[in-house]
Design a protein around this nucleic acid. Sequence first.
DNA 1: TCTCTGCAGAGAGGA
Length: 999
Amino acid sequence: MTPSLVWGNMLHEVMQMCFGDGDWSEKGVDEKIGGVVSKGLEDLLSINVSVEQAKREVKIRAKGLKTFSERYIAQEPKPEAVLSNTRQQQGQKTLLAIPQLLDVEEDIWSPSYGLKGKLDASVQAVISETDTTPNPFTIASRKPNVSQSESLTMPFEIKTGRAVAGMEHRAQTMLYTLLMSERYKTDVPSGLLYYTQSDEVIRVPAARNEIRALVIARNRMAAYMMRRTRSKTWRHRSHENTQAIHVDAREEVNIEAEPFLPSTIDDARICGKCYVLDTCMLYRKAVEGVIDDHSDIADMYALKTSHLTPTQTTFFKKWEALISMEEQDLIKFRKEIWTMGAEEREEKGRCFANMVLDVEYQYNPNTPQSTSKREGKIHQFTYRFIKANSEDTTLLNGHMSVGDAVTVSIEPDLLALARGFIVQLTPHQVVLGVDHLVDLQSVRRRNWLSSEALVIFRIDKDELSGGMGRIRDNLAQLFYAEGDTKRRELVVDLKPPTFIDFDGPVVSKNEPVAKTISKLNTNQQLAIRKVLSAQDYALVLGMPGTGKTTVIAALIRVLVAMGKTVLLTSYTHSAVDTILRKLKDDADFGILRLGNLDKIHPDMHQFTLSSLGAATSIEQLEHRVMTPSVVATTCLTIDHALFSRRHFDYCIVDEASQVTLPTCLGPLRFADRFVLVGDHFQLPPLVRNRDARKGGMDVSLFRRLSDAHPAAVIDLTEQYRMNEDIMLLSNKLIYSDRLRCGSQEVAKQSLRIPNRGYLRKLHLGSSCDSNDCWLNRVLDERCKAVFVDTDGIPAHDSRVGDLVQNITEARLVGQVTEALLRCGIEQQQIGVISLYRQQIKLLSYLLEDWKDIEILTADRSQGRDKDCIIISMVKSNDLGQIGDLVKDWRRMNVTFTRARSKLIIFGSHKTLQAAPLLEEFFKLMDSKGWILSLPPNADQLHEGVSSRTLSKRSSDSGARDRLCLKDELRPPKRPRRSDISGDVLAKGRPILKDLFNEY
DNA sequence: TCTCTGCAGAGAGGA
C-alpha cells in the first residue's frame, strides 16, 4: 500500500459517486471526499496519514472534476468537449458528450474471451466527428466516413496518476470494449480513457489487429500457466521397489517442478524498477536454478538470492510445487463456472440452478453493521432466492452450505453479477449476503427482456483460490533477501530452538494472574514455564480434554501481565472464539478480534471494531488497533492494515496440527516468538490433492518441529473432560494409556437425568416394553458410553450424488435427542456429530427447532466438548463400504473424545467392523457390554417422539408446509453422467482459445 | 471412494 495508490482509489470512488448522483459541484465533491476518506481510515492507517492530510491530497487531485463535468456531461457535445485520439490524423476534431451513466464498478467475466475485468464506469456517450478524413477508428468499425453524432455504449476508464496514455492503459481499455460488447450485446467500437492530471479524455479504438495481438498474448500467458499444471514432471521417487522403508518416507519424495514461467527479461533498467523483482529472482534461483554471472542483471540477481543455501532453495521448490498441486483441485472446480451449464453443475452439487429472486424478502440483521471494509465489504446486500419451480428437489442436497462463497449469475452472459456467501439455507430457499445490488429491472434491460420477464439466476459455489496466493506469499516471505530470516533458520534449516533457564514456579505479582496460575495442574504450569523460557518457540502437545484452551488463556494472561503483546490465531474462527470466550468475562486488557462478522461468534462481537461504531478520526482508529495487547484472528486473515504497523512479542497458533505449514507461517512473521499448540493424534491438515498429500503437504509445521526437536515439546496428559469410560476408548485405541483423568470427580461423572417422568409417560399405552426399551437403556445414568447397533432394523445408508446420508439413523438421533430434552437435559449440553456433510444437513433440519444444540462434522468438532455427544456413523450397507473417513483413526479419535459424561454412537456393527481400528473398538465395547442392539422397528416404537417433531414443523408457515419427512428425505436422484465434449461447453459461444480450461 | 477448512479481489499507481 502506497499513498498514491490510496489517493487513486479514493479519487476513483469520488468520481464514480459524482457520475452516480450527477452532482459535480465543488461542494458536492468536497462532501464526497469527506465521506470517502472517513470510510477509508484503514488505508490511511497503513500509510500512516491523517484524515486532514488525506482530504487535502484527494482534493488536489479532484480539482479537474468540475471542469470535466462542465465540458463532457451533457446531452450533446459542446464545442470545447474535445476527445483526443492518439491515432488521430491532422485536421480531425472529435467531440464527446456523456449524457448517461449505465453502471460503475461493473464486474464482467467473459468465458468466451477468457477475460475478467472491473470497469470504472460504463457509459452511454455521444460522439461527433467534425472531419470526414478516414482514420483507423472509422476503418476499424467498418463504417463509412461519418460527420454526424453517434450514440455509443462505452467503457470509461479513469487514470489518476501519470498524465500520459501508456500502452497498458490503452490495452486495458481496448479489452474492456470486448467485455462490454458481450455484456451489453451491442457493438462497442471504442473506449474512453480519462486522465485526471491533464483533464484529457482519450478515445481508444478497438483496433482489430491490436486486440488480436492482446488475445494472443493472453493465450500465451495462459499456456505457460497450463503447461505447469499439466506438467507430468512431478514425479515421486517411488519407494515401492526398495526394501528400505523409512519411518517417514515422505521426506524422500523428490518433487521436480520444471520452470514454468516465461524467461526473465534481464534488462537492468526495467528489472531494477519492477515491483515483483524479489519474487521473480527467487523463482529464477529456486525453481529455475539459473546460474548467472554475466548477464545485465547478474549483480541484482546475486543481491537478491546469494544468501540462499541449497537446502533452502530445495525447500522452497518443494513447497511451491506442493501448493501448486493442491491448487489444481481448486481450479478444477473453479473452471466449471465458466464451462458448465447450471443444471449440469447442480447435479454435481455445486450450483443452485433455476433460482428466482424472492422480492418479498426483507432482511433483518440482528448482528451489528460492520464499520470497516474488512469486516464485511462483501456483505453489502442480502437477498433470498427460491426455486423457480417449487416442486424441485431440496437445496440441501449438495456441497453448498452456510458460509460458503458463491457467485450469482444469469446465463448465458451475466456471469458473476454479484458475489458473496450463503447466510442461511433451508430446503427451499437460500439467503445470500452479496457485494452488488441485484436489481431485476436493470437486469431485464441489460438482457433486452420485457419488464415482466422471469429472471432466472444460477448460484454457484465459488472455489476461491485467493487463499493459495496468500500461502504462496507466506512461503516466499521466508526467502527474500529482506525476508524473515529468523523463521527461515528455524523452520527450513530446523535450527534447534533455545531455552533459557527459568527457575522456580511461575509467579506473578498480578494477583488475578497468580490465581489463574495456581488453578493449573503441574503439567499445565510446566507448559507455561516452557513458553516463558523459550527464546524462539515452544510446542504444546495437548491431548483431548487436557485443557489446551485453559492453558492458552492462562498463558495470554501471564504474558500480558508481563507487558507483552500477543497475536492469537487458529485456522478456524470457532477455535479462536473458544479461547476468547475464556478471556471474555474478566480480561482487564484490550482484545481485538478481526475477521468476517458473519463468521465470528456473536458473543465475541464485543471485541470487533464494529462494536465500537465507526471511527471518526485516524487517531481513534489507531488507538483501537494499535493498543490492544491481544489481537485475535484466523491464520488466513492477516491482511488487516494493522499488520503493516504492528509487531507482537508472541504469536500463539492454536490447533496448529491442523494447519498446513505455509498457512501456519503467515502469522508467525509478525511476532518475535511463537507457540504452537496442537495434537498430531488428532486431525492433520486438510489436503485435497493426493499427490500433494503424498509429497508431504499434510505434515504440519507443528509435526515437523516436534519430530525434529522433541525437547521443545511439552505434553499435556491430564484430562478434565471425559469420564473414565469414555477416556478408556481413546486411551486403549490411540494414546497407549498415556492419558489420565485429572480428578476422581471427572472420572466418575455421569449425565444426570432430571426428569425421567417423560419416559414413563411415553410408554403409557405404548407397545414398547419400557423395561427393555432401548431409549430407557440409552438414557440410563449408568450408561456412559454405548454403541447403538442399528443392524436389527436395519438402517441402510443412501446416497445423494456424491454424498452419503442415513435417514433412519437421523431419525433415531432425533428421537434420542428429543427424549433427552424432554427429560430435562439442556440443549447446550448436547452435541451431535457425524462424519458426513449430508447427514449433518439432514440432522440440522430435523433438529431445527432446538437452535442451541450443536450439530457438527467430526472435523469441525475438534476443540469442542459437550456433556452428551451423539454420533451418527451413517455407513450401513451390505457391500461393506466403509469409506475413507472412518478409516482415519485420527478422525475417529476426535469424535470419540468430545463427550464429557455420555457418548452415544449410532451405527451398523456389521458394516463398520471391517475397519481395523473399529474392529478393536468393537472388541473393547463388547468386552465391556456397551453394545446395544436395536430391535426391528426400533425407529417406529416411540411414535410420540418423532410425530411431535413433525407436527410442530408442519404448523410452520411458508415453503415448509409442503414438506414432510418422507418427501424431504426421499432417496436421491441418480446423477446423470455428463457427456463433456468440447463444443457443448460454452453453449455455442465462441471460445477463442480456451487454454486455461484445457479445451 | 466421495469428506473436511479457510480465503474477496481486479485494480488502485509506479515510470
